[in-house]
């Protein structure tokens, strides 16, 4: 049964059969997008920096918007759907550190160490 279903699912013409939406729900999240992990550390001491705001540009005016924050160990994971199409500009800022802008366009690598 499952084998037959997989063949059916693989056939382009019938894929729509499996894409449903509950009456009062959303469509499915079929695009896992990409995920990027950051570890933010001090340039001077190498120590992890918590509570650093991570921003990307967005909106019609290309303003900076927060997309995540580092945890107590200096780690943050950011997800995105659009990132795989373009390079993306990240900005890192927080208390007592000089903000940093980084352009990332190599999405084969999903872990990035950021030194502030």
């Amino acid at each position: 049964m499952k084998f037959f279903r997989n063949i059916l699912k693989g056939a382009a013409l019938t894929t729509a059969l499996f894409v449903f939406q509950a009456c009062y729900g959303t469509g499915p999240d079929f695009d896992p997008g990409i995920e990027m992990s950051f570890h933010v550390v001090s340039k001077q001491t190498g120590e992890a920096i918590p509570d650093i705001t991570i921003m990307t540009r967005g909106g019609s005016e290309s303003k900076w918007f927060e997309v995540g924050k580092t945890d107590s160990q200096g780690f943050a994971k950011i997800y995105g759907l659009d990132y795989k199409h373009n390079g993306i500009d990240f900005k890192f800022e927080g208390k007592g550190v000089t903000p940093k802008d980084t352009l990332i366009n190599d999405f084969s690598k999903n872990f990035h160490e950021i030194r502030l």
Binding site: T26, G27, P28, D29, F30, D31, P32, G33, E35, I54, T56, E66, V67, G68, I78, Y79, G80, L81
Partner: peptide, 8 residues
């Protein structure tokens, strides 16, 4: 979006 939302 940064937290991974895929549908809305």
């Amino acid at each position: 979006m940064g937290a991974g939302m895929g549908a809305l």
